[in-house]
Design a protein around this nucleic acid. Structure first.
Lengths: 233, 233
DNA sequence: CGGTTCTGTCAACGGTGTTGACGGAAAATT
DNA sequence: AATTTTCCGTCAACACCGTTGACAGAACCG
């Protein structure tokens, strides 16, 4: 339950851990984000988290009903970090781009959280903030009502999905990533022109672009189309 | 190793399992896809897979170096299913849309595979086919060289990312999905208009659109923008 | 037929999330 | 201030996970 953490939080006792730590939902979320940030996706487990904080692993279940609930809380914290220091400018398009890039960066820096939360509703306070911001920019662009909501949802889901999948890849062990790049080379370096004429024609470019990040280009395509819609009215 | 499966496959002996099954990479991939298809993302594990096939779980490691390698093979098989029965028409935009929808449907129907493969290169035969198809449509639309490759990569990554994240959500237990919908209601049904003016203004629409699938809209935005680029030349 | 290579089975390792019982410490009540 | 109640950190344990190494029999090759 999302409520659980907060309700209990308000009348929390500050008993100390065997190792001397004082627990709270915030402390746990902080430590969890630090773990995924430093040791990658595989770095987070209940036992390791307990070790990092200095408490018995199962103590975490006094603050979060499950790791899923913990992930949701971490997700909301990521939104907070995304918005931390963000100052909107004049142009709505620039602002949306900035918000997208910040979200992407934060998620890529905390891999496993992204996948856990990308399709979810944290229901947290910061989620409300960022939705309000995006909706605000879209309304400034001239969208309202259902059109604005549909665009906000598309834009948001796009960014979350892209960030999550990219984060997932970047979080994999170096050998896996290297093997993937090698497979690009092997599979598309030399293609049968009879069977795959289009692929063969562009093969060298395909291989050369294996490491190019597509998020930026895809983001630009989407923003341009939104702008076009705004101009049409 | 991806090569491993195939090489060994060619000179395979057909010893029978204790339960009478004859193993092969294809049999294993089939059974694995059936498991994730029927019992959701959590339905697949090496032990359960062995049970479904009728062999010792560890026998699978004679055909795939790891579950990751198995996932890649499953991913390539999903592409085959995507292309199975696909007949391209006249319009490149329609064709791209159809390919996107088919991919989405296949991934959503086999949740865990999507997340495992969305950011990866399977290097399989069918991957080559679909890339050739997409590149072909883009070239028909008037793109070539680097422009074509960049668009193909953006388009592909977008579809895979969106499909994977949607599949991830749909594969979660019903209670989780219900709780998420409830959280939409709770968090955005009644918002403080002072603090979040834009969100408050559109709140009812936001809640009403909680279950709307954004893939279609986002896909249309992207296709429209690609079309616009094609017209500009 | 003999030797070699393959491959299905088995036991085991170290890891995971989660549960339930327990006991002491903090808060609430009297 | 004493007593009751509630909380919450700890511990042991459960059922599961992916993966490894040894082993023995079946299949193949000469």
């Amino acid at each position: 339950m999302a409520a659980m953490a907060r309700v209990i939080e308000s009348r929390r006792r500050n008993t100390r851990t065997k190792a001397g730590a004082v627990l709270s939902a915030d402390v746990i979320v902080d430590a969890a984000l630090a773990l995924v940030g430093e040791h990658g996706a595989a770095g987070l487990s209940v036992r390791r988290l307990g070790g990092a904080i200095g408490c018995d692993p199962t103590a975490i279940y006094r603050y979060f009903a499950s790791v899923d609930a913990l992930f949701l809380a971490m997700g909301d914290r990521l939104i907070a970090r995304t918005l931390d220091g963000y100052r909107p400018g004049e142009d709505w398009k620039d602002n949306l781009r900035t918000l997208a890039r910040r979200t992407y960066a934060e998620y890529v820096a905390h891999p496993r959280v992204a996948i856990a939360v990308a399709s979810r509703v944290t229901g947290g306070a910061h989620e409300r903030r960022i939705i309000d911001l995006v909706l605000g920019e879209l309304r400034r662009a001239g969208f309202a009502g259902e059109r604005a909501v549909r665009l906000y949802r598309s834009f948001g889901d796009f960014i979350l999905a892209f960030s999550a999948v990219d984060a997932d890849f970047l979080a994999r062990p170096g050998e896996v990533r290297a093997a993937d790049l090698q497979r690009w080379q092997d599979a598309y370096g030399d293609v049968d022109a009879e069977q795959f004429p289009n692929l063969a024609a562009e093969a060298p470019i395909v291989v050369a672009h294996a490491t190019v990040n597509t998020f930026e280009l895809c983001l630009e395509l989407l923003l341009d189309q939104i702008e076009a819609l705004a101009l049409i009215r």
